[in-house]
């Protein structure tokens, strides 16, 4: 039972192993706090959409399943969107269009189609949590690396906490801007994927 949960975190990590859901991963991992916010939103949507899809799996007709998944997913995305706008306006502004875009996030649709539609409710919830946490971990690690190198801070919050100054003042004057630009995102994810494969190969060897 718990194998389902942990599989989503390491062995089938959606971002680093399956390479799905890359669009939000690359776009919002410019700071650790943004990444965490995005991760929390995805965990919420993924878990509840898996729950609903799995509980109605016997009555959802095969030919109409994709539109139905989308409706279920967009319901939860709308909830997240409005809650975020009301209580965390700064974060909501930073994530921008990528919150509504969770609707078409292939991790969520992929788990609904590939797992929740075929498995009982308990397993589906665990799978949703596991994949969501896997996504959050990947994007949080990326956000941490990119923010520390690209900005010199860690966990800075828009309009609030200005972040831990990890690398000192000299670095803050000349941060590696490249890291918070799009190519930096591709570079960091390439390193993480490479590292993941390296350790996977070592462990199985």
């Amino acid at each position: 039972m718990f194998k389902t949960f942990f599989e989503g975190i390491v062995k089938n990590n959606p971002v680093l192993v399956l390479a799905i859901g890359l669009c939000p991963t690359l776009a919002v991992s410019t700071s650790a706090f943004n990444a965490l916010g995005m991760g929390a939103a995805v965990i919420f949507v993924l878990t509840f959409s898996n729950l609903i899809v799995s509980s109605f799996r016997k009555v959802i007709p095969d030919s109409l399943r994709i539109p139905i998944f989308i409706i279920v997913i967009s319901t939860f995305v709308t909830i997240v969107d409005y809650v975020m706008k009301a209580y965390l306006p700064g974060l909501s502004k930073n994530l921008g269009v990528f919150v509504p875009l969770i609707v078409v996030n292939c991790i969520i649709l992929g788990r609904a189609e590939g797992f929740a539609y075929k498995n009982p409710v308990g397993k589906a919830i665990l799978d949703g949590l596991g994949s969501g946490i896997g996504f959050t971990l990947a994007i949080f690690i990326m956000g941490t690396i990119r923010e520390i190198l690209g900005q010199g801070t860690w966990m800075s919050i828009p309009g609030g906490f200005e972040g831990f100054k990890v690398l000192g003042q000299g670095f803050l004057n000349y941060p590696v801007l490249f890291m918070i630009l799009p190519p930096g995102g591709f570079l960091v994810i390439a390193f993480l994927m490479g590292g993941m494969r390296y350790f996977e190969a070592r462990r199985s060897a």
Binding site: P175, V176, F178, M179, L181, P183
Partner: peptide, 10 residues
């Protein structure tokens, strides 16, 4: 390109 993107001011 890397240093240009990172430190345009320099």
């Amino acid at each position: 390109a890397f240093v240009m993107a990172s430190w345009p001011q320099i």
